[in-house]
């Protein structure tokens, strides 16, 4: 079967099974930017976009993804290769520590900013509440997402 990942059609084995997207990405396509954390849809480390919506790749069977558009952290950078405003902001605020949750954090935040260009503090906390960070960078994540929103929407006064 074919999957549309980061704008490219990719052929994967059609085993007629419902193997989760996270394992197809990581183990079959060697796209290891999407991380495995709990396999139960709780921690958010495997968050990708399916048709622009933040989605848990560990809870998403590939046989439900025909015709849908999947975006992973590898496809988040802009067309010219420059970093997404969130990636810039996460560097600027020196957010990651171990970094394992960061692909998921950034994909969750990117889905938020796509539908809410000027999120309030409460909007950011609500959206980012779905993603664990064991290193405890929550406070920097909030600041970086707010900063990225400002980068994306330069104030014109």
């Amino acid at each position: 079967m074919e999957l549309s990942i980061n704008g490219k059609l990719v052929t994967i084995a059609d085993n007629g099974d419902s193997r989760p997207l996270v394992l197809v990405l990581r183990d079959e396509l060697n796209m290891t930017g999407t991380k495995f954390g709990c396999g139960a849809g709780i921690c958010g480390a495997c968050t990708v976009h399916v048709d622009g919506v933040a989605t848990r790749a560990c809870q998403t069977p590939v046989n439900q993804l025909a015709g849908k558009s999947i975006t992973t952290i590898e496809g988040l950078s802009l067309a010219d290769g420059s970093l997404h405003p969130l990636q810039q902001a996460f560097i600027e605020h020196q957010v990651p520590q171990c970094g394992w949750c960061m692909s998921g954090q950034i994909m969750t935040a990117a889905a938020l900013l796509a539908v809410n260009a000027n999120p309030s503090r409460a909007d950011i906390v609500t959206a980012m509440d779905t993603n664990y960070c064991r290193c405890g960078t929550y406070h920097r994540i909030r600041n970086a997402v707010a900063h990225a929103a400002s980068l994306k929407n330069p104030v014109t006064e």
Partner: peptide
Amino acid sequence: QKRLDIPAKVTGTAVYGHDVR
């Protein structure tokens, strides 16, 4: 100084034990 390992960690290119292929 900015952390040397962070750029790879926001682009998904840092390699961890779980990522070795």
